[in-house]
Design a binder for these strands. Sequence first.
DNA 1: AATGAATGAGCATTCATTCAT
DNA 2: AATGAATGAATGCTCATTCAT
Lengths: 219, 219, 219, 219
Amino acid sequence: MTTQVALNPLKGRRQRRMARRRREIMDAAACVFAEQGYAHATTRAVAAAADIAEGTLYNYFESKRDILLAIAQRAEAEVNALLDETERVESVEAMVALVERGLQLLLRNLPFTRTLWMEAWTDDEILREFGSAWLQVLHARIERFIEEQVALDLFRPVNPALTSTMVLGLVFAPIFPVLRGIVPPPTPEALHGIAEAAVDLMLYGLQAREAGHVGAVPR
Amino acid sequence: MTTQVALNPLKGRRQRRMARRRREIMDAAACVFAEQGYAHATTRAVAAAADIAEGTLYNYFESKRDILLAIAQRAEAEVNALLDETERVESVEAMVALVERGLQLLLRNLPFTRTLWMEAWTDDEILREFGSAWLQVLHARIERFIEEQVALDLFRPVNPALTSTMVLGLVFAPIFPVLRGIVPPPTPEALHGIAEAAVDLMLYGLQAREAGHVGAVPR
Amino acid sequence: MTTQVALNPLKGRRQRRMARRRREIMDAAACVFAEQGYAHATTRAVAAAADIAEGTLYNYFESKRDILLAIAQRAEAEVNALLDETERVESVEAMVALVERGLQLLLRNLPFTRTLWMEAWTDDEILREFGSAWLQVLHARIERFIEEQVALDLFRPVNPALTSTMVLGLVFAPIFPVLRGIVPPPTPEALHGIAEAAVDLMLYGLQAREAGHVGAVPR
Amino acid sequence: MTTQVALNPLKGRRQRRMARRRREIMDAAACVFAEQGYAHATTRAVAAAADIAEGTLYNYFESKRDILLAIAQRAEAEVNALLDETERVESVEAMVALVERGLQLLLRNLPFTRTLWMEAWTDDEILREFGSAWLQVLHARIERFIEEQVALDLFRPVNPALTSTMVLGLVFAPIFPVLRGIVPPPTPEALHGIAEAAVDLMLYGLQAREAGHVGAVPR
DNA sequence: AATGAATGAGCATTCATTCAT
DNA sequence: AATGAATGAATGCTCATTCAT
C-alpha cells in the first residue's frame, strides 16, 4: 500500500505528461497534415514538428493513421460539445451567435479543420469519424426548424431538406477559402458580420410574404 | 507525292487513335484518383483501369502528375466554354437554366470533378490550373449582378462580395454530397428543382421590401 | 529461272543496301556509346542518331548488345589487317611508321575505340572479342623483338615480357587523353612526333652501352 | 551533467559504428561496381554485398551515385596524402620507392581503383573528383623534373610534356592488366622489380650520352 | 523493310514501422 | 520512455524488345 500511495501521484503526473505529449503530437501532426496533405506528410516530418524522435510517435499512437483518427475524434468531440449546449435556438440573436460560434470553432484550430475536411473527402472512415455525425445533427436540426416555421406560416412552403442543405452551404461558404488557406482568417468583427449576413439572407429568403420575386430581375 | 497521299490517312488514323487513348487514360485515371485520392492511387492501378501496360502511360503523359494536370486543364476548358457562352443573365428562367447547366456539367464527369476538388484542396498548382480562374470569374459576375440590382433598388443594400460567396455556397451545397459519393446523383428533374430552389432562395433573400425579418423567429 | 535472273541484281542491291545501313547504324551507335557509355545509352538515342525508327534496329541486329559486339568485331578486323601487313619491323623508320599507323587507326574512328576501351574494362566478352587478341599478338611480337635484340647484345639484358608491357604503355599513353575526350586529336604532324618520340625513348632506354644511369639524378 | 557524461559514450559509440558501417558499404559497393560496372550494378546487389537492407543504404548515402562519389573522394584523399609527403625525389632509390608505393596504393584497394578507372572513362564528374587532380599534379612534377635534368645536360633535350606522359604510361602499364582483373596481383617482390624496371627504362631512355640508337635495329 | 506504340521486367528511392540500445 | 538506425514492401518511372500495321 505504501508504494501505491507513493506511486499514485507519480502515476498521475506521468499520465498527465503522456496526455499532454499526445496533444502536442496531435497539434504538430495537424499542422503538417494541413500543409502537405495526410498522404504526402511523412512521420519523420511529424516527429520533427513535435520535436521528438520518430520512434517515440509509436509510444503514443498505433500508427500514422491513428494520429489522424485521434485528431478527428477530438474535433468531433469539440463540435459535439457545442451542439449539446445549444439544443434550441430562441431568437435571431441566438441564431447569429450560434453560427458565429460554429465558425469560430472551425477557424480556431484551422489545421485540424483543414486536415479533416481534406481527408474526409476521400476517406470514408474519417468522414464517419468526424464529419458525418455532427453535420447530420446540424442538418436535421435546421430541417426541423424550417418545418416548424413553415407550419406556423412564418416561412414560405419550401422543401425543408433541400433548404437545410442550402443554408449550410450559405453559412460555410465564407470560411471555405480561409480553410483552404488562400484568404487570411477574418477578424472577430468580420466573423460576426459574416454570421449576421448569413442569418439575414436565410431569414429574408425564407420569410413568408405576399410579393414574389419575379420583378427582381429586370426585363 | 503518291506516298504522301497514301501515308496521310495512316498517320491520321494513328493520331486519332492516340488522341482517343489519351482520353481513355484520363477517364480511367479520374476514376481511380476519385476513389483513392491522387497520392494513394498508383500508376499501376491507373494502367489497370485503362487496361494498358504501365509503361504505356508514359507514351501519353510525362508523369503521373501530368495526367492530373491534363484532367484539370480539360475540366477547366469545359467550364470556361460554359462561362463564355453565358456572359449575361437576362431573366429568372435564364438564371435557373445557367445554374442547372453548371451543376449538370460538374455532375456529368463526376470522377473528374471529385478528383479536382480533392486535389485542389492541398495542391496549389491544381487549384490555379482548375479551380481558381472560373470560380473567380463566376464570383465576379455574381458580385457585379448584385451591385447592379442594389443600385436599382431591386435588392437590399448588402455587401456584394460576401453575398456573392454565400450565393455560390448556396448553389453548390446540394451537389456537394453527390460529389463526395455519399448521395446518388439527382435525376434531371431533381436537378432542375435544385436550381429553381437555389435561385428562388437567393432572390427572395436579396429582394428589397419593407418588412424586416425579426418576427420570423418567435421570441 | 527468269525471275532468278531478274531478281539477282535486285538481291545484290538489297544486300548492299542492308550492309550499308548496318554500317550506318554501327557508326551512329559508336558515337552515342562513346558519349554516354554503353549502359547509359538508350536504343532510342541510337535509333535517333541513325535516323531510323527504334524497331528498325532489330532488323539489322539481334539486340543492343549485338551492336556493340559488331562494333568490336569490325574494329578487331581492322587492327588485325594492320598487324597482318606488318609481320616484321626492318628499320627504325619502319618502326616509327608502324606505331604511327597504329595510333592513326585508333584515332580514326575515335568513337569506336573509345566505346570499346570503356566496355572492355568491365565486359569480358568485349575484351575477348576486341582487345585481347590483337593486343596479345602485338605484345608477343614486341617481346620477341626485344629477345632477339638482347640475344644480339644490341639491347641490355632486360625482362622481355615486362619491358614489352611498358613499351605498350609508353606508346599508348599520349593518345589516352585523346580517347578520353579531354584533349583534342593531334594533327598528323604531332602524331608523327609522338611516334618518333616513343620509339626514340624505347630504343634509347633499351640500347646496350657501358655507363649506368646512376649519375643521372643529382645528389 | 551526469546525463551528459553518461550519454557521450553512447553517442560516440553510435557515431563510430555509423562511420564503420559507411566504410563497409563503400567497400562492398566498390567490389560490386568493379565487377559489374556502376551502371549495371543494382542497389540491391550493393546492399546484399554489404549484408544490409536496401533502405539502409540511404541512411548513409544520399543516392547510389553518392556512394560512387564518396569512393572517389576517399581514393583521391589517399593519393593526395602520398603526393604530399613526397614533394621531391632525391635519388634513384627514392624514385623507385615512390613508384613502388604509388603502384602499391592503387593495388591495395583494387576494387576502388578499378571502379574509378572505369567510371572516369565516361563520367566527367568522377574524372574531376578522382582522376584529374592528382594525375595532373604528378604529370606536372615529372615534367618539371625532366626540364631540370635537361637544363643540367643530364637528360637529352626532349619534349618534357610529351615525355612526362609517356613516362606515366610506362609506369602504369604493368599494373593495367591487374586492375582489369585478367592478371593476378604481383607479389611485393615482383612489384619492386616493376618499379625498378620502370625507373631504369626511363632513366636509360632519357640519359644524355654520345652515341645515338641507330645501330640498335639491325639491317 | 520500316514504323513506333505497347509491353512489363527491372530499378532507384521512399517511408511507415520495428526494435536493440 | 526515448531514441534513431534498420527494415523491406511499395512506387513512379525507364527502356530493351516485340509486333501489329
